Amino acid sequence: MLDAFDELVRLRTGSAYAVDSPSLAMALVAGASRAGEWVAIVGAPEFGYEAAAAFGLDLARTIAVPSPGEHWQSVTAGLIDVAGIVLLRPPAPVAEQQAARLRSRLIQKDAALVVWGEWPRCHQRLSIRSSSWVGLGQGHGRLTGRQVEVAVSGASDPGRTTSIWLPDPDQRVRRLDEVAAPVRLEDHSRLAQRAG
């Protein structure tokens, strides 16, 4: 895992994790990729590979199947054979029986599954509770970072939350306390008034 998630979640082989945002999905698979794992991404044609690479995803060890269509389950099962972590965006609601088949494959192959969407009986569920962007002034500027509050819950976990940069102004995923808060444009004008 990336350091920002250290006290929040640990990916375990044989388990499935559900996320509600592409940024969370990118951050989870990026940590495994940095550790040397092959990553497969299934059913996400709009996935932001450039942003994921900034988080730490090694594109040279990434397999992408953007549109598997009705064969998404067999494609995912096949990729579990070769990748340590698979990111899946199911095209439709997933039945318990479908999830159970893939769960047994994950256990057999020592792989983990990150699902961008809902997943029956997942090990943990991560969701963004609140989000705020930094970098814009009054009508000008550009977005440079995003602060989010991430909630984690699971079958044996009552739930925890933490605040992280997703990403910070350097386009990295880090804890809020690791990065000095950027000075907003309106703060610059106040400082100039005091100095003048």
Rank of each mutant, 00 (worst) to 15 (best):
M1Q: 08
L2Q: 09
L8W: 14
V9P: 02
R10G: 06
R10V: 10
L11M: 09
L11E: 01
T13D: 03
G14S: 04
S15T: 08
S23V: 11
L24C: 10
M26V: 04
A27N: 11
V29L: 07
G31D: 00
G31M: 01
G31C: 07
A32W: 07
S33P: 06
R34N: 14
W38E: 03
A40K: 02
G43N: 05
G43Y: 05
P45R: 06
E46R: 07
A51T: 09
A52V: 03
A53L: 03
F55C: 00
F55S: 00
G56T: 11
G56Q: 10
L57D: 02
L59D: 08
A60R: 13
A64T: 07
G69S: 01
E70D: 14
H71R: 15
H71T: 12
W72D: 02
S74Q: 13
A77C: 10
L79M: 06
I80N: 03
I80F: 02
L88I: 06
L88R: 01
L88W: 03
P93R: 03
P93I: 01
P93F: 03
A95V: 06
A95D: 14
E96F: 04
Q97S: 15
Q97H: 12
Q98T: 14
A100E: 13
A100C: 02
R101S: 11
R103Y: 05
R105E: 14
R105P: 04
K109P: 00
K109V: 10
K109S: 10
A112F: 04
A112M: 01
L113D: 00
V115H: 04
W116V: 00
G117H: 00
E118A: 07
C122M: 04
C122K: 09
C122F: 05
H123D: 13
H123G: 04
I128R: 05
S130Y: 06
S130P: 08
S131R: 14
V134K: 06
V134M: 08
Q138H: 08
H140E: 14
Q147N: 04
V152P: 07
S156T: 12
S156Q: 11
P158T: 12
G159N: 14
G159Y: 14
T161D: 08
T161V: 15
T161P: 00
T162S: 12
S163G: 09
W165S: 13
W165Y: 06
P167K: 02
P167F: 10
P169G: 11
P169V: 11
D170W: 11
L176S: 08
E178Y: 07
V179M: 14
V179P: 10
A181C: 08
V183E: 15
L185P: 02
E186K: 07
E186C: 08
D187E: 15
R190A: 15
R190F: 15
R194M: 14
